[in-house]
Amino acid sequence: MTITIDRRIYNDSVISKALYWLSGDYLIERSLSDNNTESVTITANSATDISETELETRLMQTLNDFKLRQIVADETRDIKTILYAKAFAEDEDLSEEDIHD
């Protein structure tokens, strides 16, 4: 099965994380069709009960979930650093000014 993914919607990190979870059961080949389009060919390692439609649905859901996780991670990177520094770096005195909004 080959599906195309628009890299303007899902960046490389999101695609990689989503495909990671398929790598146990499937052989995955990635190639760039053009700057914005990636082709992903997925071949089952062994006989499977999962249809191509089910697999594509699952992959698209996983891509969407990882995209949401990426947004949360990007928006919280600085506050996460501040909170961890407050918790574990005793001399750190980070505040609101350290957040790059």
Binding site: D65, L68, R69, V72, A73, E75, T76, I79, K80, L83
Partner: peptide, 8 residues
């Protein structure tokens, strides 16, 4: 509002 780190 602002997000705080979480996963789901």
């Amino acid at each position: 509002y602002y997000l705080l780190p979480f996963d789901f």
